[in-house]
Design a protein around this nucleic acid. Sequence first.
DNA 1: GCACCCGCAGTTTTT
DNA 2: CTGCGGGTGC
Length: 802
Amino acid sequence: MFPENASSSPLLHNLNPEQRAAVTLPAEHALILAGAGSGKTRVLTTRIAWLLQTGQVTPGGILAVTFTNKAAKEMLTRLSAMLPLNVRGMWMGTFHGLCNRMLRAHHRSVNLPATFQILDTQDQLSAIKRLCKQFNVDEERFPPKQLQYFISGCKEEGQRPGDVPARDEDTRKKVELYQLYEDQCQREGVVDFGELMLRSYELLRDQDAIREHYRRRFRHVLVDEFQDTNRLQYAWLKMIVGLPGEGGGAIMAVGDDDQSIYAFRGARVGNMADFVREYQVRHQIKLEQNYRSYGHILDSANALIGHNTARLGKNLRTTQGAGEPVRVFEAASDFEEAQWLVDEVRQLVRNDGFARHEIAVLYRSNAQSRVIETALVNAGIPYRVYGGLRFFERAEIKHALAYLRLIENPRDDTSFLRVVNFPPRGIGARTIEQLQDLARESGCALVDAVSAVPGKAGANLGAFIAKIDVLREQTQGRTLREIIELVLEHSGLIEHYRADREGADRIENLEELVNAGESFVMQEGFGRDAVALPLDEQAPAALGQSPASQGLDLDAPVLDAPLAPDQETGETLSPLAAFLTHAALEAGDNQAQAGQDAVQLMTVHASKGLEFDAVFITGLEEGLFPHENSASDRDGLEEERRLMYVAITRARKRLYLSHAQTRMLHGQTRYNLRSRFFDELPEGALKWITPKRSASASTGAAPWGSSGAMPWEAAPRRNPTPQPAWGRSSLSAPDFGAGPVPERKSEPEHGLRVGMAVFHNKFGEGKVLAIEGAGADARAQVQFTRHGTKWLALSVAKLTPV
DNA sequence: GCACCCGCAGTTTTT
DNA sequence: CTGCGGGTGC
């Protein structure tokens, strides 16, 4: 089936049978179900290396697509470690990076300027706000955020304004605004993220020659995290390879339906089943051998995910031993949970030899990090929070980029408005409104309407565009570094921030921008980002606008053509334009101060794809995890469960689960029941380490978290604390130090829990959505079948469980 | 044109 | 309880 020399290739050493089977599959469509920690990236990269090594394909025949730049980089790094590699001809990157590359190469065919710039989510929103103002849209009725969601949603479904079914008046209005937004972007020469995908898709759909070119070229299309693809991305892939029998390449889709956690942003797990059906996939390989976690951890993951229906079906297994049990802790409050966590982290580092950066603290929502951060700060434990503002999203950086973009394209109104009066130069809202009116009347860009503004206001505006013009001239023929330095100097940004008491950080970031430009240039001659290549120098070589372009032999020089200038554009992207593209497509590191050995804090979502020696999953409470907004329907709950599955499978050696009985949320104390997920884990793999509390013990009352059902629980639950871990000194006398354990004078007596069906004398039947407060203050949010959702004070309203 | 104050909302996120 | 955005007042 494959060349003999290849079957013994060193590439295949140390692969398990399933991995090896996946790597050496024939050139046909295949689905690889890759469980967590099963060596997915390894299979993907080895597959590519193997295809190349056995001469089945040249680098130019490979298209490998991922979701994040990080994943793309990782793949490239590992691949180059396996093979000496000419990465230039290979298309490896994110969906958006590759679409960008394609659109740059064919910018004329898709009616875009060669230097089109990319709007990130923030830019898109401000563009929409601007549009709404201009057309006097009632922003109460049509919040810009919602319009943005609507437009992005349409694009992800592959719908242009004309394709959107507009049943009601509201939708018609939104579609109209969608159209106006499109016109505006087109006029300004900018595209948003959705547009990158959609326009690239349409290019392939509508331009036969171009589509056939790519179809013949890409013999092997490899897709990472396939379960996260949205409708448009799958359609795009289908365009690139065609349906079976249409002469296109083979798709190897790698994914894990159990790790599908992005439905909320359009991901369609269903693409996996569709793919199998539409491509008559014969080769489905399950990678179930897990190389990451010990047995108890995997048992927990398997048992939990087993509660989901409609799975493709997988069970992780390990050859490592059972390992330690999963430790479960019940805290009286979020505060106590954090204290406990700090103590435990100390133990891990001091006694058990865990590196701090090998310890992760996971939570469902960002708001939960605060208490934990406070406790860590007080304890002097270094930590890092993932997922704040990224480098290129910071305001000062966006300001600097706006100047740079205006140099490149003065018609970029979004950038124009961002900095026309920043730093302040006496151009006020009135003037800008006037300018916008003038521009709209004559249908031109803001910059072109400046000369029509009279008086002092006009002079100020004139000075602004003169400044930009001067910068543009000065930067001619300069290196990227010099360009950025010039902009920082002449824009007045640095000066402005120097006057600001809290501007020091911002100045530092601006100076960092110079470095970012420098290293961008270093990386690839000038801005040829190896991952998300902004400019394709190869493929379109055969697709030029030469007289014979329609009849060109698209096959001949393409696959390994020598690097040639883009014949369609006849020009190369300037370093500046390339850098701006890079800034939009790769927003930069998502983590705070890297480098030092710090505990890692992040949401469960952010943890996907990572692994740690020790993992804490905190806030395992009904309403939080599973989140209240998701727990009401089955799909939502199943996604929450997959999220929990992702969280569990991050851990290598040790896993902690914790929940708190009370938690401050939105400035109020909430009483949360422990997560139902606890009931879905195998008892034998767990160990409750919650210590007995002296307060409750001395009164003789059943201690929280001790044996027996909670007093307010309708159905008896499994014993949450079979054997408190008295033996361990660290646990027997918990030092909850800094504050008193919150008093619990009034334990809930209402007997209600979230999800419970209840009856009210006036409102009839309903379902409890949330419970808040305690004793006389206790309130419940109930969704009534006939009377909507209401908050009821439990001391007043009579609710009876049904 | 800017500063301050009030009011309101408040999962998850990459490109 | 926070942070952000809009609106008002100087």
